[in-house]
Nucleic acid binder design. Structure first.
Length: 421
RNA sequence: GUGAGCGUAGCUCAGUUGGUUAGAGCACCAGGUUGUGGCCCUGGGGGUCGUGGGUUCAAUUCCCAUCGCUCACCCCA
């Protein structure tokens, strides 16, 4: 049997209401905060991601879907959105249209990792990028939006972690300090961390190995080696979160695996989705736009994984909106009158009602069963003796009460019945 | 990329210590007297028992390989 590619999943009709529920909530939220939607292509020139995210990161070095197309261009399916948004921002000079662009997106992403609970090769993220402002108001707003959406979805088991990476200058100084400390413990580090020691020393903080964690306990933390401005920036972010009653933990070991972050970084971690627990992550990236060839422009953003949110909601038994029931189901009593059905059904559909009927010449019993399965409010019987008297029989499915209505008046009668129900 | 577990109907699973037409529940379809649902009853369709090879008179059941799925490592949304 031919199947979907590993790590790529069909979203079947039964699950669609969950997606609508989340997507609607997201769009409303971003609308309230005046973020404008942006849609970028599903693929980009590979350099967009390799330059933005960092050549040494796992995403770039081993997880991207990269191929050479027929014109010999290296193409990559987008593994994350920030780099793509920044590319579009620069290409279309969005910064010239207004000094601050508040953007959001909902989009599929692609990373070739081994699938597991909460991890797919094609997955979906929504997120936001506020490009053009240095203010900690924006860092806080981004965090508040991410937190509030997750809260509004009905989730309870999650924690917000924040940290500051400061500016590159203080980070470089700190790396030397961290290096001096770790040098004395180098032999005790895990193999992976030994590699990181040379490639990207900060990422050693991501290690889950107990030996590494033991060593890191007494390590100097970046947050204690920030410059004055970075400290001030971080303090304001925290104050705004406090004022908005957003609970958080400062996690000095929160580093994150993308190279472009400066100042604030944050993550929202779920306690109900298994080992892939990050629901959401983001932070400030003040050097990225320049790095990709734009004018020096600060930015801050986040991304959240929709599949993980759905998983968390299922595991926490959070209710989703039910699909709306049918207003009317036409049951055909006399098979030879089937041509009448579309005419009446479409009249109702054109005034905004949800209407269904049988297409398979099924028995009355079968038609009724389907009407019941679809949680129909009213069944209209077409045919029979009442038809010769110019009447329809209408049955209210919740109480079983039947009434006869004149055919020529059926539209308004039905609307009245449905509205009153 | 590494490791572990699992692959029998659309779904959840039984079962065969190798042997005649492979089962249940749910779902689906058709009936249960003369035009009507949700409960109940009867019947029906649907499986090359993941795939390929081997052992055997005989394999879905044993062996090997392979593919896939799941979870974990890793990384991250």
């Amino acid at each position: 049997m031919i199947k979907a590619v590993t790590g790529a999943k069909d979203i079947l009709p039964n699950d669609i209401p969950k997606w609508y529920f989340i997507e609607e909530l997201i769009r409303n939220f971003f609308s309230n905060y005046n973020y404008k939607e942006i849609r970028t292509p599903i693929f980009e020139e590979t350099a967009v991601f390799s330059r933005a995210i960092g050549e040494e990161t796992d995403i770039v070095s081993k997880e991207m879907y990269t191929f050479v197309d027929r014109s010999e261009t290296s193409i990559t399916l987008k593994p994350e959105m920030t780099a793509a948004v920044v590319r579009a921002y620069i290409e279309h000079s969005l910064g010239n249209l207004q000094s601050l662009n508040k953007l959001f997106y909902i989009s599929p992403m692609f990373r070739q990792e081994r699938p597991q609970a909460g991890r797919l090769r094609q997955f979906h993220q929504f997120g936001a990028e506020a490009i053009g402002g240095l203010s900690p108001l924006l860092d806080a707003e981004i965090i508040i939006i991410a937190y509030s959406i997750i809260q509004k979805l009905g989730l309870k088991e999650f924690v917000l972690k924040i940290n500051s990476l400061g500016i590159p200058e203080s980070r470089e100084k700190y790396k030397v300090i961290l290096g001096d400390y770790l040098k004395n413990h180098f032999d005790e580090l895990s193999e992976e961390s030994k590699k990181r020691f040379h490639k990207n020393i900060l990422r050693i903080f991501d290690s889950k190995s107990p030996e590494d964690q033991e060593i890191l306990k007494n390590a100097p933390y970046l947050i204690n080696h920030l410059d004055e401005n970075s400290i001030e920036h971080f303090n304001i972010v925290k104050t705004i979160l406090d004022n908005n009653k957003i609970p958080y933990e400062v996690d000095p070991a929160l580093v994150r695996g993308l190279d472009y972050y400066t100042h604030t970084t944050f993550e929202i971690v779920s306690g109900s989705v298994g080992s892939q627990s990050a629901l959401c992550g983001g932070g400030r990236y003040d050097n990225l736009i320049e790095q990709l060839g734009g004018k020096p422009t600060p930015g801050v953003g986040f991304a959240a994984g929709i599949e993980r949110l759905i998983l968390a909601m299922e595991n926490e038994a959070v209710p989703f909106n039910e699909p709306s029931p049918l207003d009317v189901f036409f049951v055909l009593l006399d098979k030879d009158k089937y041509l009448l059905i579309p005419k009446f059904a479409n009249l109702l559909r054109n005034v905004g009602l949800k209407v269904e009927h049988d297409y398979l010449q099924r028995s009355i019993k079968a038609q009724m069963r389907e009407a019941n399965r679809e949680k129909t409010k009213f069944v209209v019987f077409v045919g029979g003796d009442e038809f010769t008297r110019n009447l329809f029989t209408v049955k209210n499915m919740s109480d079983g009460v039947q009434t006869e209505i004149p055919i020529e008046d059926s539209l308004s009668s039905l609307i009245t019945m449905i509205k009153g129900n």
